[in-house]
Deep mutational scan, measured.
Amino acid sequence: AQASVVANQLIPINTYLTLVMMRSEVVTPVGIPAEDIPRLVSMQVNRAVPLGTTLMPDMVKGYA
Rank of each mutant, 00 (worst) to 15 (best):
G31N: 01
M21G: 02
V49S: 02
A34F: 09
P12I: 04
S4N: 01
G52D: 15
Q44E: 12
A48E: 15
T53M: 11
P57S: 06
P38T: 09
Q2A: 13
V20Q: 12
R23W: 04
V49Y: 02
V5T: 12
Y63S: 04
M22C: 03
D36M: 09
Q9G: 06
P12H: 08
I37Y: 02
V45F: 01
V27S: 05
G62F: 09
T18C: 04
I32A: 03
Q2T: 09
M21R: 03
P12C: 04
A7L: 03
S24F: 13
M56R: 10
L40T: 01
V20N: 15
P33A: 09
S4Q: 02
T54Q: 04
V26Q: 13
P57D: 09
V41Q: 11
V41I: 08
T15Q: 12
S42K: 12
T54R: 07
Q44N: 07
I32H: 01
A1V: 11
N46G: 12
A1R: 02
Y63P: 05
M43F: 13
I37N: 01
S4L: 02
K61Y: 14
S42M: 13
Q9R: 08
V26T: 09
R47A: 09
L10Y: 15
V60Y: 01
Q9V: 14
L10G: 13
P57E: 06
I11V: 14
Q44S: 09
S4M: 02
G62W: 09
T28S: 10
A1E: 15
Q2L: 10
V41K: 05
L51S: 11
V60T: 02
Q2E: 15
V30T: 14
A7E: 01
L55D: 01
N14K: 07
T53K: 08
R23D: 04
V45H: 00
E35K: 04
T15G: 09
V26P: 07
T53F: 13
T28N: 09
N46E: 12
M22R: 00
A3L: 12
M59S: 07
V30F: 15
L10M: 13
L40M: 11
P50T: 11
Q44H: 05
T18L: 11
L51N: 09
V6T: 11
V20W: 08
V20C: 10
A48M: 11
P29M: 08
M22G: 00
A64H: 11
V5L: 04
A48W: 07
S24D: 15
N8C: 03
A64N: 10
S42L: 13
K61L: 10
L19T: 15
V60P: 01
V6C: 03
I32T: 02
M22I: 12
S24C: 03
Y63K: 03
L55P: 00
E35C: 03
T54F: 02
N46C: 03
T54V: 10
T15N: 05
N8I: 05
I13R: 10
V6G: 01
Q44G: 04
V41T: 12
A3E: 15
G31Q: 03
L19I: 15
V26E: 15
L40Y: 02
I11Y: 01
V60K: 01
R23V: 05
E25I: 04
A7Y: 01
T28F: 04
Q2S: 11
L17Y: 01
V26D: 15
P29H: 06
V20K: 14
D58P: 09
I37S: 08
S42P: 02
P50Q: 08
V26I: 08
D36T: 06
A3H: 10
T53L: 08
V45M: 08
V60M: 06
M21L: 10
Q9L: 10
V49F: 02
R23H: 04
I32E: 00
L51M: 13
V20L: 10
P29L: 09
L40S: 00
S4G: 04
R23K: 07
E25C: 04
L10A: 11
A7I: 07
P33C: 04
N8P: 02
V6L: 12
A48K: 11
M22F: 10
V6A: 04
G52Q: 09
M21Q: 09
I37Q: 15
M22W: 02
I11L: 08
G62H: 11
E25F: 04
A7M: 08
L51A: 10
N14S: 08
Q9I: 14
G52V: 02
V30D: 15
A1M: 11
E25N: 08
Q2D: 12
A7D: 01
M43E: 05
P57Q: 10
V20G: 15
N46L: 12
L40N: 00
V41G: 03
S42G: 08
R23G: 08
Q44A: 11
I13D: 09
V41S: 08
L55F: 13
V27L: 12
M59R: 03
P29A: 08
I11H: 00
A3Y: 13
R47G: 06
T15M: 13
D58I: 12
M59G: 04
T28D: 15
M56A: 07
N14M: 13
M56V: 13
T53A: 12
I13F: 12
N8F: 07
P33Q: 04
G52Y: 12
A34H: 11
Q2Y: 13
M56N: 07
R23F: 04
P29C: 14
P12M: 10
S42Q: 13
A34Q: 12
V49E: 01
P29V: 05
L51P: 14
P12W: 11
M43D: 04
R47H: 08
G52I: 02
K61W: 10
L55N: 00
